[in-house]
């Protein structure tokens, strides 16, 4: 079983991203859980969301304290929230940022595991002309975790976007571009 914790800010779509990931994994035959930690939700406040992905039925219904992966959708949370709390040393943290790995490592209080960086906001601005980093983040997470192959991701998300954007078909292609770039442009991963 893979356990993932998402950190984002209200309104940025960390919850949506976690649900999209659950959907994509479900479509490849997995058992999934996707759930946000509901708090006093408001735009900009830190929020947490979770995923469990498994080949067998998932029974545990608690939050995730020792995740295999942490995803940070907004790098301004680093320092404000203890994003690496409980993160396994053999796991990884995936951050939406324009900073380099070395400076990130300094900010992560000695986290010794793998650090990945992806400038999902830049990809989103270029492909979608707006800051919706979800799609690129999702692809980056799939790449790092290996939950499914790139082909599976692409065919899955194509279907999902067709459904989701049935009334706005013009945004399907830009989202697919962001997806592919997210998958390709993730960097880092050394300890």
């Amino acid at each position: 079983m893979i356990e993932i914790r998402w950190h984002g800010r209200g309104g940025q779509g960390a919850k949506t991203a976690s649900l999209l990931l659950a959907d994509a994994a479900f479509n490849t035959g997995k058992f999934i859980q996707g759930f946000p930690e509901y708090g006093p939700e408001r735009m900009g406040a830190p929020i947490t969301a979770y995923n469990r992905i498994s080949d067998t039925q998932i029974r545990t219904h608690s939050n995730i304290y020792e995740p295999d992966y942490v995803v940070v959708v907004d790098d301004s949370l680093i320092g404000a929230v203890d994003v690496t709390s409980g993160l396994k040393e053999n796991g990884a943290i995936i951050i939406n940022t324009n900073e380099d790995i070395d400076s990130l490592r300094k900010k992560l209080n000695g986290y010794n595991g793998k650090i990945y960086a992806i400038d999902a906001s830049k990809i989103s601005l270029e492909c979608l002309k707006a800051n919706f980093p979800n799609t690129a983040m999702l692809a980056a997470v799939v790449h790092v975790t290996g939950i499914m192959s790139e082909d599976e991701l692409i065919s899955n998300m194509k279907d999902a976007f067709k459904h989701k954007f049935a009334k706005k078909p013009e945004v399907i292609e830009p989202n697919m571009q962001a997806l592919i770039r997210g998958y390709e442009e993730i960097k880092g991963g050394t300890k």
Binding site: L19, A22, D23, F26, F31, I32, Q33, G34, F35, P36, Y38, Q57, I58, H61
Partner: peptide
């Protein structure tokens, strides 16, 4: 059934 834990969690 449990609010949020079951009501709002996506599962198979």
């Amino acid at each position: 059934y449990d609010g949020f834990i079951t009501s709002h969690s996506i599962e198979n």
